[in-house]
Design a protein around this nucleic acid. Structure first.
Lengths: 241, 241
DNA sequence: CTTAGAACCGGACGTTACGTCAGGATCAAG
DNA sequence: CTTGATCCTGACGTAACGTCCGGTTCTAAG
């Protein structure tokens, strides 16, 4: 008992276009065709489709569904657990965003007020985040704090934004060289090390004690990948002199 | 002091490609070009871009950002409040999905077990949802409930799935005719009314008392749009005989 | 003045999961 | 034989860019 595409669509609540799409991406290829190339789906196809619908209902992307159906060697627990983690991450981001939005004081704000408020909110979040990541254990002493605040006023807001934007790019480049296996003594890496040193110097104003405190702080609470990067750039910095 | 695209990218932490994209979609058109057609951004452009970054940071789609920037007549409170509602909806869906996933009993399940479990879970959700929407006030009496359960067993699971899939399609078509201003006496609408009557009959088994109870229930807790549809299809049903 | 490398240009494809035509072939019923 | 329903392939659109390409232009060093 073969089904034509329209029949199958009616029975499953999907559209004809969707079924053709699944065929196109190799997710569900009809087990037969008529002489006129009309698709014919078997009952096995229907059962496969129901599995697809189930997995789609829990939010698995079609690519992953195809992977698990074609290679049942995938462990259900692992795939689902991984998927749950992905969902949790997205959920956490959404929730944080929403909370921040709710905290904004909207009363009587114009667009320019609003963008400014949001901008401030962003900066506060970044500072909090950095503070959190650095950890609170090896804090700067009062004198050091005062010095840092002074520097902040000195270099100006604009430059601070530039520096903040520069860090992720620099880290990304370092990670790329690391992944490519470039030795830390390579000229390209030495260049990166110089930029690194420059950014750190902009923050610390060149004071070695502040740099040391920072270094300790970061070293204490880093992910393995960050530690690897730290060692790598440390070696390159050593080669600089 | 005009900035070239690379400069602006460095200062804002965006990529060159992103800025070109913003130009392409008319979100941020550079205020000038060199003779060689290289983009030149003014400080005003930079400020606009910072506003864009702020609004993007709260998750507003670029299309809406463009709209509010081009026509500041948009009320900030309204736009933000609307955006918050959109985020809340998405969040609720995500959360519900995640909870359902967590409730699944994964221990030792194979893929076929898993899809079956998910399928069951889906059906339960749909039933709960329907029950919720119909409301609990004008409930069926015991005799009616027994009758309905009997019918459910009678028509079989497969047909139930088909019918459940048919409803949204039918409603969508009715809404389309309504929106197009087709009179309820139009043959096309009468056809839809016949299909409607058929689906209701499949559920009630033709018993007028059950149909009446259902009708009351729905009528009591409908959105305005659904009420309009209800009247429309009611009129068409009247024309049938 | 030339040349190499950096920066710039527009154009096009890829990503996700389909919706929506367009133009044409096939099928069932009258 | 002619409709009307159903089917086919192909192609564009969606959101927000990333990535690659082949071809200019700019800038600094030689």
């Amino acid at each position: 008992m073969k089904l034509r595409i329209g029949e199958l669509a009616r029975r499953t609540g999907l559209t004809v276009r969707t079924l053709r799409h699944y065929d196109q991406i190799g997710l569900l290829t009809p087990s037969g065709r008529t002489e006129a190339e009309h698709r014919l789906y078997s009952e096995t196809d229907l059962r496969t489709l129901q599995q697809i619908q189930s997995l789609k209902a829990i939010g698995l992307p079609l690519g992953q569904i195809r992977a698990v159906l074609q290679d049942p060697g995938h462990d259900p627990q692992r795939v689902i657990a991984q998927h749950i983690r992905v969902l949790e991450e997205g959920l956490a981001r959404q929730r944080a965003l929403l909370e921040r939005l709710r905290r904004l004081d909207l009363a009587g704000a114009s667009w320019s007020d609003l963008t400014e408020v949001i901008g401030m909110s962003e900066k506060v979040e970044r500072m909090l985040d950095t503070a959190r990541r650095v950890g609170e254990q090896p804090r700067f002493d009062d004198e050091q704090m005062k010095y840092l605040e002074g520097r902040r006023a000195e270099v100006g807001e604009a430059r601070i934004q530039e520096v903040e934007a520069e860090w992720p790019r620099l880290m990304a480049e370092v990670l790329r060289e690391m992944a490519a296996g470039t030795p830390a003594s390579d000229p390209r890496v030495l260049d990166l090390a110089r930029r690194w040193r420059g950014l750190v110097a902009e923050f610390t104003g060149g004071r070695a004690d502040i740099g040391g405190t920072l270094n300790e702080s970061y070293r204490a609470n880093m992910t393995p990948e960050m530690q690897a990067m730290w060692s790598y750039i440390g070696e390159a910095l050593g080669h600089l002199q």
